Simulated assay, not measured.
Amino acid sequence: MSIHVWDYVIKWGLARNPELFSDPTSYSRNDFNTLKNTLQQCIPFIKFHNLTSKDFSKKVLPYKKILPKDLYNELLDDFLNDDRKPIKKPTTNVEKFEENGINSKIITTQRAELISKWINGQKSTDELEISYNFKLLYRESVDGFDRFKKFHEICDN
């Protein structure tokens, strides 16, 4: 699942910078810096340690210049270890959301994790310590189009 997140983040970054080619082997230093500046807020949310060595090698290494140096060195050390297996951490509510798909146009998996960190008083770069179970309370297309009245009826208290 993490490799799909990485793929989409790269696609999003390229879409935000249409002057960049999809092949990073042709990038200049400025091209990498442009992509790095675009994606710097997204990188902390990618679970690189859950990738296979093959995915890391084929999909992440070509973009190594956009990763923070300390993260890149840590990942390189992990992925060069032949005995390495993807780290399976206990499933958090955010990961359960990710598996089931957050069916919202407003709250994404990354935003749910960020909101959880805000509730915990953590920085956005911190590892999530406690996760929360987010529950969809109101959907206009399901609950009706009388927005304010129905919303308050369902969500108040």
Score class of each variant (00 low, 15 high):
residue 1 M to T: 12
residue 2 S to P: 06
residue 2 S to L: 08
residue 4 H to Q: 08
residue 5 V to C: 12
residue 6 W to F: 09
residue 7 D to G: 04
residue 10 I to P: 00
residue 11 K to S: 10
residue 13 G to P: 06
residue 15 A to Q: 12
residue 17 N to H: 03
residue 20 L to F: 03
residue 20 L to E: 04
residue 20 L to I: 05
residue 20 L to N: 04
residue 20 L to K: 04
residue 22 S to W: 09
residue 23 D to T: 07
residue 25 T to V: 09
residue 26 S to Y: 13
residue 30 N to D: 13
residue 31 D to V: 00
residue 32 F to M: 04
residue 34 T to Q: 10
residue 34 T to L: 09
residue 39 L to H: 01
residue 41 Q to R: 09
residue 41 Q to D: 14
residue 43 I to Q: 00
residue 46 I to M: 01
residue 47 K to H: 09
residue 48 F to Q: 01
residue 49 H to L: 06
residue 49 H to I: 09
residue 51 L to N: 02
residue 52 T to S: 08
residue 52 T to M: 01
residue 53 S to C: 11
residue 53 S to A: 13
residue 54 K to G: 06
residue 56 F to A: 01
residue 56 F to Y: 10
residue 58 K to L: 11
residue 59 K to C: 02
residue 60 V to Y: 03
residue 61 L to D: 13
residue 62 P to I: 00
residue 62 P to N: 04
residue 65 K to R: 10
residue 66 I to Q: 05
residue 66 I to W: 06
residue 67 L to M: 04
residue 69 K to W: 07
residue 70 D to H: 08
residue 70 D to I: 08
residue 74 E to M: 10
residue 76 L to C: 04
residue 76 L to N: 11
residue 79 F to V: 05
residue 81 N to Q: 13
residue 81 N to R: 15
residue 83 D to M: 10
residue 85 K to Y: 07
residue 86 P to G: 03
residue 88 K to Y: 07
residue 88 K to E: 08
residue 89 K to N: 12
residue 91 T to H: 00
residue 92 T to I: 02
residue 93 N to V: 00
residue 95 E to F: 02
residue 95 E to G: 00
residue 95 E to D: 15
residue 97 F to C: 11
residue 98 E to T: 10
residue 100 N to R: 13
residue 100 N to I: 08
residue 101 G to P: 05
residue 102 I to R: 11
residue 105 K to E: 12
residue 106 I to T: 11
residue 112 A to Q: 08
residue 114 L to Q: 10
residue 115 I to E: 05
residue 115 I to M: 15
residue 116 S to P: 14
residue 117 K to C: 01
residue 117 K to D: 01
residue 120 N to S: 11
residue 121 G to F: 05
residue 123 K to F: 06
residue 124 S to T: 15
residue 126 D to C: 08
residue 128 L to E: 14
residue 130 I to V: 10
residue 131 S to G: 02
residue 132 Y to Q: 03
residue 133 N to W: 08
residue 137 L to T: 07
residue 139 R to A: 15
residue 140 E to Q: 09
residue 141 S to C: 12
residue 142 V to G: 04
residue 146 D to Y: 08
residue 147 R to S: 13
residue 148 F to A: 15
residue 151 F to L: 13
residue 151 F to E: 08
residue 152 H to S: 08
residue 152 H to D: 15
residue 153 E to Y: 05
residue 154 I to A: 11
residue 155 C to I: 02
residue 155 C to E: 05
